[in-house]
């Protein structure tokens, strides 16, 4: 029973991580809270829904990732790029993001409708038996794919030239452009990555729960995960997501599912009082 709960928790946590990593990446590059991240997740889920029954889950995941990535890129070009170039304060970007989120949600209401859709059954209730517990194949699959994706992103950020340029941009965007980097293009890459992760998370959420226009509100959990881990830190966002997922599942199983969100937000508040920078957000001092 405990192992089963733990795996479910890790699986939900891994999906939170997927969302949190993208959200955190955008925060670290542009220093604003991208409230349209949830809408991108939702659109990713709809793309997956449209493709999954005919083309299978694997293809749906890839296409949702690509589609949501492109949507996030367009979102940045249309709604943030002009503000960013004028050096607008991050509050303006945040308000623009809220507007985008409402716009996209209502577009879905107006065109697709408010109905709840369910993904076709992929794994049914197929399970894997391990040490006397039966673990859902869906949970294992979501966990493995999410963790692999985050690990791949980590390698990309630390090992490749584009990754180094992204980290340089996080450190000092003006200097990054003075090195010869086209920062508009760099920011597009960042939004594509964040969007792609959001799209994949959207499909997993849709498969686990349902697909509907406001399903993106679950990104609240990604914000919490990112803050727990320390905003701007990718390993932190990953850790934060996993911790949050496991805690929530344990609370729902052993205490009460009604208490789940109360618990998440209480845990966040408590953590911020003790560790204002999150688990991995602390930077050591620089010499000037």
């Amino acid at each position: 029973m405990f192992l089963q709960t733990l795996v479910t928790g890790l699986s939900i946590g891994a999906i939170y991580s997927l969302m949190a990593v993208g959200y955190s990446l955008i925060f670290s590059v542009l220093s604003f809270s991208n409230f349209a991240h949830g809408a991108v997740i939702m659109l990713g889920a709809y793309i997956g829904l449209a493709l999954a029954s005919k083309l299978g889950l694997g293809f749906a995941l890839v296409m949702s990732g690509a589609g949501a990535g492109v949507i996030a890129m367009i979102n940045e070009r249309v709604a943030y790029a002009a503000l960013r170039r004028r050096g607008a304060p991050s509050l303006y970007l945040m308000i623009s993001a809220m507007g985008c989120s409402m716009f996209l949600e209502n577009m879905v209401y107006a065109t697709i409708g408010a109905r709840f859709y369910a993904f076709p059954e992929f794994f049914g209730s197929r399970t894997v038996r391990l040490w006397g517990s039966s673990l859902s194949l869906l949970d294992l699959c979501a966990f493995v794919i999410s963790v692999t994706a985050v690990f791949a992103l980590h390698l990309f950020i630390t090992r490749t030239r584009t990754g180094i340029a992204i980290r340089a941009g996080v450190n000092d965007m003006t200097m990054c452009s003075l090195m010869g980097v086209n920062t508009d293009r760099l920011i597009s890459v960042v939004f594509f990555i964040a969007g792609a992760f959001a799209g994949v998370a959207g499909v997993f959420l849709g498969v686990r729960y349902l697909v509907y226009p406001t399903m993106g509100w679950v990104t609240n959990k990604a914000y919490i995960a990112a803050v727990i881990g320390g905003l701007g830190s990718l390993p932190g966002a990953m850790m934060g997501g996993l911790i949050l997922g496991v805690l929530e599942t344990l609370v729902s199983t052993y205490i009460s599912s009604v208490m789940r969100d109360v618990f998440s937000f209480t845990a966040l508040t408590a953590l911020l009082i003790c560790l204002p920078d999150g688990l991995m957000g602390a930077e050591t001092e620089d010499k000037v």
Partner: peptide, 26 residues
């Protein structure tokens, strides 16, 4: 044309090697 700005503006969170790689990023 390459600028070394006032107060250096290094990528302080990155290693010396990574800073040099950034210089040659193009």
């Amino acid at each position: 044309v390459s600028l070394v700005p006032e107060r250096r503006r290094l990528f302080t969170a990155m290693s010396v090697r990574e800073n040099l790689i950034m210089g040659a990023i193009r």
